[in-house]
Computed example of a mutant assay.
Amino acid sequence: MPTLPNGFKPTVAAYSHDGPGGVLRTEIAGGAARYALDFERGMQKFNVTLILNKLQFSVWVAFFIHIIKKGAYTFEMPLDSGFGTELHACNIMPGSYSASRTGGIAMVVSFVVEAENKAYDFSAAEAQAMVDFYNATGGEGDLLVARIAQFANQDTLVLS
Protein backbone atom coordinates (compact mmCIF):
# COMPACT_ATOMS: atom_id res chain seq x y z
CA MET A 1 0.00 0.00 0.00
CA PRO A 2 1.41 3.44 -0.86
CA THR A 3 2.39 5.68 2.05
CA LEU A 4 2.30 9.46 2.24
CA PRO A 5 5.78 10.74 1.23
CA ASN A 6 8.34 11.10 4.03
CA GLY A 7 8.06 14.28 6.06
CA PHE A 8 4.51 15.12 4.91
CA LYS A 9 2.48 15.63 8.07
CA PRO A 10 -1.00 17.06 8.54
CA THR A 11 -0.99 20.39 10.37
CA VAL A 12 -2.43 20.40 13.86
CA ALA A 13 -4.29 23.72 13.53
CA ALA A 14 -6.62 22.54 10.76
CA TYR A 15 -6.90 18.96 11.99
CA SER A 16 -10.35 17.65 12.88
CA HIS A 17 -12.62 14.67 12.33
CA ASP A 18 -16.20 13.55 12.77
CA GLY A 19 -17.64 10.51 14.57
CA PRO A 20 -17.66 6.99 13.14
CA GLY A 21 -21.44 6.77 12.76
CA GLY A 22 -23.40 3.55 13.04
CA VAL A 23 -26.08 4.67 15.51
CA LEU A 24 -29.73 5.18 14.58
CA ARG A 25 -32.13 7.54 16.35
CA THR A 26 -35.91 7.17 16.09
CA GLU A 27 -38.35 9.80 17.33
CA ILE A 28 -41.13 8.41 19.53
CA ALA A 29 -44.37 10.38 19.83
CA GLY A 30 -44.81 11.53 23.44
CA GLY A 31 -41.60 9.98 24.71
CA ALA A 32 -37.86 9.88 24.64
CA ALA A 33 -36.19 9.00 21.35
CA ARG A 34 -34.92 5.45 20.88
CA TYR A 35 -31.33 4.69 19.93
CA ALA A 36 -29.98 1.55 18.28
CA LEU A 37 -26.67 0.32 16.93
CA ASP A 38 -26.97 0.03 13.14
CA PHE A 39 -23.45 -1.26 12.51
CA GLU A 40 -20.37 -1.84 14.67
CA ARG A 41 -17.46 -0.37 12.70
CA GLY A 42 -17.50 2.85 10.77
CA MET A 43 -15.27 5.18 8.81
CA GLN A 44 -14.52 8.67 10.06
CA LYS A 45 -13.88 11.74 7.96
CA PHE A 46 -10.62 13.54 8.81
CA ASN A 47 -10.04 17.10 7.58
CA VAL A 48 -6.39 17.25 6.56
CA THR A 49 -4.17 20.21 5.66
CA LEU A 50 -0.62 19.89 4.36
CA ILE A 51 1.67 22.91 4.11
CA LEU A 52 4.27 22.15 1.46
CA ASN A 53 7.18 23.96 -0.14
CA LYS A 54 7.58 24.07 -3.93
CA LEU A 55 9.50 20.78 -4.19
CA GLN A 56 7.18 19.00 -1.75
CA PHE A 57 4.16 20.21 -3.70
CA SER A 58 5.61 18.76 -6.92
CA VAL A 59 6.14 15.43 -5.15
CA TRP A 60 2.62 15.61 -3.71
CA VAL A 61 1.04 16.24 -7.14
CA ALA A 62 2.91 13.26 -8.64
CA PHE A 63 1.84 11.09 -5.68
CA PHE A 64 -1.76 12.31 -5.84
CA ILE A 65 -2.24 11.94 -9.60
CA HIS A 66 -0.17 8.86 -10.41
CA ILE A 67 0.30 6.80 -7.25
CA ILE A 68 -3.05 7.10 -5.44
CA LYS A 69 -5.07 8.05 -8.54
CA LYS A 70 -6.58 11.22 -7.02
CA GLY A 71 -7.44 9.42 -3.79
CA ALA A 72 -9.24 6.46 -5.36
CA TYR A 73 -6.48 4.09 -4.22
CA THR A 74 -6.07 3.48 -0.52
CA PHE A 75 -2.86 4.86 0.99
CA GLU A 76 -1.36 5.08 4.45
CA MET A 77 -1.13 8.40 6.22
CA PRO A 78 -0.21 9.37 9.80
CA LEU A 79 -3.37 10.47 11.63
CA ASP A 80 -4.37 10.78 15.28
CA SER A 81 -7.72 9.08 15.84
CA GLY A 82 -7.32 9.20 19.62
CA PHE A 83 -4.25 7.11 20.43
CA GLY A 84 -1.43 9.26 19.12
CA THR A 85 -0.21 9.58 15.57
CA GLU A 86 -0.34 6.23 13.76
CA LEU A 87 -0.58 5.13 10.15
CA HIS A 88 -4.17 4.79 8.94
CA ALA A 89 -5.42 3.35 5.65
CA CYS A 90 -7.12 6.33 3.90
CA ASN A 91 -9.01 7.35 0.79
CA ILE A 92 -9.52 10.97 -0.25
CA MET A 93 -13.20 11.87 -0.55
CA PRO A 94 -14.12 13.08 -4.05
CA GLY A 95 -14.72 16.82 -4.29
CA SER A 96 -12.87 17.64 -1.07
CA TYR A 97 -9.43 18.46 -2.53
CA SER A 98 -8.12 22.02 -2.83
CA ALA A 99 -4.69 23.62 -3.15
CA SER A 100 -3.72 27.27 -2.85
CA ARG A 101 -0.48 29.21 -2.83
CA THR A 102 0.15 31.45 0.14
CA GLY A 103 1.73 34.90 -0.19
CA GLY A 104 5.14 33.22 -0.19
CA ILE A 105 6.29 29.95 -1.65
CA ALA A 106 4.19 27.59 0.51
CA MET A 107 1.31 25.60 -0.92
CA VAL A 108 -1.63 24.75 1.32
CA VAL A 109 -3.26 21.48 0.29
CA SER A 110 -6.51 20.51 1.99
CA PHE A 111 -8.72 17.46 1.60
CA VAL A 112 -10.92 15.05 3.54
CA VAL A 113 -9.91 11.43 4.03
CA GLU A 114 -11.95 8.53 5.28
CA ALA A 115 -10.20 6.19 7.72
CA GLU A 116 -11.16 3.72 10.42
CA ASN A 117 -10.46 4.66 14.05
CA LYS A 118 -7.65 2.71 15.73
CA ALA A 119 -9.99 2.07 18.69
CA TYR A 120 -11.34 -0.87 16.67
CA ASP A 121 -7.96 -2.56 17.16
CA PHE A 122 -8.87 -2.98 20.85
CA SER A 123 -11.18 -5.65 22.21
CA ALA A 124 -14.05 -4.60 24.50
CA ALA A 125 -12.10 -6.04 27.45
CA GLU A 126 -8.99 -4.00 26.56
CA ALA A 127 -11.10 -0.85 26.25
CA GLN A 128 -12.65 -1.52 29.66
CA ALA A 129 -9.19 -2.10 31.16
CA MET A 130 -8.05 1.26 29.79
CA VAL A 131 -11.05 3.03 31.34
CA ASP A 132 -10.56 1.18 34.64
CA PHE A 133 -6.84 2.11 34.75
CA TYR A 134 -7.69 5.75 34.06
CA ASN A 135 -10.35 5.76 36.80
CA ALA A 136 -8.03 4.03 39.30
CA THR A 137 -5.14 6.45 38.72
CA GLY A 138 -7.25 9.60 38.53
CA GLY A 139 -5.87 10.43 35.09
CA GLU A 140 -2.27 10.31 36.37
CA GLY A 141 -1.54 6.90 34.84
CA ASP A 142 1.09 8.27 32.48
CA LEU A 143 3.15 9.45 35.46
CA LEU A 144 2.83 6.04 37.13
CA VAL A 145 3.87 4.14 34.00
CA ALA A 146 6.80 6.53 33.41
CA ARG A 147 8.00 6.02 37.01
CA ILE A 148 7.74 2.22 36.70
CA ALA A 149 9.75 2.39 33.46
CA GLN A 150 12.42 4.52 35.16
CA PHE A 151 12.62 2.07 38.06
CA ALA A 152 12.84 -0.98 35.77
CA ASN A 153 15.26 0.49 33.23
CA GLN A 154 17.46 2.88 35.24
CA ASP A 155 17.15 2.72 39.03
CA THR A 156 17.66 -1.05 39.33
CA LEU A 157 20.79 -0.86 37.17
CA VAL A 158 22.64 1.37 39.66
CA LEU A 159 24.25 -1.60 41.41
CA SER A 160 25.43 -3.29 38.21
Rank of each mutant, 00 (worst) to 15 (best):
L4E: 00
L4P: 00
P5Q: 02
P5A: 00
F8L: 07
K9C: 05
V12N: 10
A13T: 13
A14H: 15
S16F: 15
D18I: 08
G21P: 00
G21I: 01
G22V: 07
G30P: 03
L37Q: 10
L37P: 06
L37C: 08
L37F: 13
D38C: 05
D38P: 08
E40G: 06
K45T: 14
N47I: 06
V48S: 01
V48P: 01
L52A: 02
N53C: 06
Q56G: 07
F57A: 03
S58E: 07
W60L: 02
W60I: 02
V61I: 14
F63A: 03
F64Q: 05
I65F: 15
I67T: 14
I67Q: 11
K69M: 11
Y73T: 07
E76F: 15
P78W: 12
P78N: 08
L79Y: 05
L79G: 02
D80A: 04
G82M: 06
G84M: 13
E86T: 11
A89G: 05
I92Y: 02
I92M: 02
G95K: 03
G95T: 02
S96L: 00
S98C: 02
A99S: 12
R101A: 06
G104H: 09
G104E: 09
I105G: 07
M107H: 15
V108H: 09
F111L: 02
F111N: 01
V113C: 01
A115W: 02
A115C: 03
E116V: 09
A119Q: 13
D121H: 15
D121P: 10
F122Y: 14
A125V: 14
A125H: 12
A125W: 15
A127Y: 12
Q128M: 10
M130E: 01
V131E: 01
N135Q: 12
G138T: 04
E140H: 14
G141C: 03
D142H: 14
L144K: 05
V145D: 05
V145K: 07
V145W: 12
A146V: 05
Q150G: 05
T156H: 14
V158D: 10
L159T: 14
L159A: 11
S160N: 10
